[in-house]
Amino acid sequence: MTVYGIKNCNTVKTALDWLKQHHVDIDFHDYKTKGITAAKLKAWSKQVGWESLVNKRGTTWRQLDEVVQKKITSEAAAIELMMEKTSVIKRPLIEEDGKVLALGFDEENYKTTFKG
């Protein structure tokens, strides 16, 4: 199971702490150091929709010029943005065997998803 995110993100820290406390084995993939591929983003987009992957509530999105924000109207545009500015990807995203198990942190969802 792989957790995708950014180490200094509070939501990622909360999720990692929760997973550790519940003895869930994970690998961590830091977007800042390892980046992300267009193929991976497309696969996730097929499962959860590109709109769900773009964190429009985060600082990175809010700092974008309004003109840039308005151009994000398709999967292709969203993937291009997410590859360029990985911190705009909603996090954490947890994947196992190519399947998205969780996006963001929701303790109730984690309790159901990660029974272990």
Rank of each mutant, 00 (worst) to 15 (best):
G5N: 07
I6T: 11
K7A: 14
K7Y: 09
N8W: 03
C9E: 05
N10V: 10
T11M: 07
T11E: 04
V12M: 03
V12D: 04
K13E: 12
L16Y: 08
D17M: 12
W18L: 06
W18N: 04
K20A: 14
K20M: 08
H22R: 10
H23R: 12
H23V: 03
H23M: 04
V24Q: 14
V24K: 11
V24R: 11
D25S: 14
I26L: 12
I26K: 10
I26W: 14
D27I: 08
F28P: 05
H29S: 09
H29C: 08
D30C: 10
D30H: 07
D30T: 08
Y31H: 07
Y31N: 05
K32A: 13
K34N: 12
G35E: 03
G35H: 02
I36N: 02
I36Y: 05
I36P: 00
T37D: 00
T37V: 01
A38R: 13
A39P: 00
L41K: 05
A43H: 05
W44H: 03
S45V: 01
S45T: 01
S45P: 01
S45W: 02
K46C: 03
Q47G: 07
V48A: 08
V48S: 03
G49H: 09
G49L: 10
W50P: 00
E51Y: 02
E51T: 09
E51V: 06
E51N: 06
